[in-house]
Design a protein around this nucleic acid. Sequence first.
RNA 1: CCUUGUGGUUU
Length: 245
Amino acid sequence: IVTYNVLINAMCNEGDVDEALSVLRSLPSRGCKTDAVTYTPVLKSLCGSERWKEAEELLAEMASNKCALDEVTFNTIITSLCQKGLVDRAIKVVDHMSEHGCIPDIVTYSSILDGLSNKGRVDDAVELLRRLQSYGCKPDSIAYTTVLKGLCSAERWEHAEELLAEMVRSDCPPDEVTFNTMIASLCQKGLVNRAIKVVEQMLEHGYIPDIITYNCVIDGLCNEMCIDDAMNLLSNLPSYGCKPD
RNA sequence: CCUUGUGGUUU
């Protein structure tokens, strides 16, 4: 079954869900008993292409095969729903986890935070972040960064800076993704000078700006009609140890 | 820690 699970996952990652489904269908005749790992990648692919009905049928099939849903399966579905903007539906799924003996974890909540942030419901995201402790989850850098992105999208820079400062104070310090998130948002909103200050902060924290960092700044410079600066930065990338992509 | 599935950054 592990062999077939690897195969099914690979097919899903290549975009061949239907091929994966046909392998899944063939498993009983090969004497293999499917498990949650078999179904999860297929569910992820189906949800990713918004084939919700088939996903639900597959979930029903799992139930009838007495194949228990686990945390990863739930998190996969919840993440897909959030990525498709269906965060309220995702929250309902979270509420059903305990019936299956599953406890929402930091991955579950990070997905919800992302869904809320992307819907512009950043105040709800902040509130959920604050409640994580009482749900038995310790916020980590990913959870913070997700909410930070929501604040940046809403151009609530002061609040975003506060959250960043809070991360530094607490025991989940910002990482390269956190800094890149802030830099990307500032550059997108035409605040390249402010973004460059964050690049300096990034260096102070021991993180080396990477190609994503520079792509954001170059893009921001171009949008501000500073093509010469952008060209300069681009030609200096190799000297910063970065290969343009 | 040791065969497979889940969360945050640019285009």
